[in-house]
């Protein structure tokens, strides 16, 4: 037990020293800034063309999400592939009303995704509660507890509008211009 405690403390000390050194010299020093500037465009290109949303269908807009991945509207041509687990995703598509029973689970899904992550509120129900805005069990908009990046209006959202929403998100990511070292180490 004693040995274990000593080792833990030592590794904690080491981690804080390593973070400090990396933070000061690498990220904010000249080497870090050079690496960042060289790789920003490449990093942005990779992020923009491989947005992986989560397999999460709540209500009617989920059927349009499925139709958008069919052969007619083909969302995969802009790089969108649905993944089943939040650990492998970087986009959370909220496509229906959020009820009070669902709220903690949705927040947990959002927390399980790793950085960088974006949230797209699809449809009126996710933006503001939709036609159910003043019932006792629907939360008026998903941005009450999750920060949203792009809002796509519609009831239900046409697949063409959904793909345009994704392209607006891609424009937003391009404007952010974040390289590999400007990320928070999470």
């Amino acid at each position: 037990m004693k040995v274990g405690t000593v080792l833990m403390m030592r590794s904690k000390d080491f981690m804080s020293w390593a973070d400090d050194w990396v933070g000061r010299v690498m990220k904010k020093g000249p080497i870090g800034r050079a690496v960042d500037t060289l790789l920003t465009d490449f990093w942005t290109w990779a992020r923009v063309n491989s947005l992986y949303p989560l397999h999460f269908g709540i209500m009617c807009c989920a059927l349009e999400m499925a139709a958008a991945s069919g052969a007619r509207f083909d969302a995969q041509r802009i790089g969108v592939i649905y993944r089943s687990t939040p650990r492998q995703c970087d986009m959370l598509l909220v496509n229906g009303p959020v009820s009070k029973k669902l709220r903690p689970d949705l927040r947990r899904l959002y927390d399980q995704m790793s950085e960088p992550k974006w949230v797209v509120a699809m449809g009126e129900c996710a933006i503001s509660g939709g036609p159910f805005w003043n019932t006792y069990s629907v939360i008026e908009g998903v941005d009450q507890f999750i920060p949203v990046d792009v809002y796509i209006p519609g009831c239900p959202v046409r697949p063409e509008a959904m793909i345009e929403g994704f392209m607006k998100l891609q424009d937003k990511i391009r404007k952010e211009k974040k390289g590999p070292l400007t990320e928070e180490m999470v």
Binding site: S99, F132, T135, Y136, S137, V138
Partner: peptide, 11 residues
Amino acid sequence: IGYLHRGMEKL
């Protein structure tokens, strides 16, 4: 079930 309950009958 119940994650999609929107209170339709009251609505």
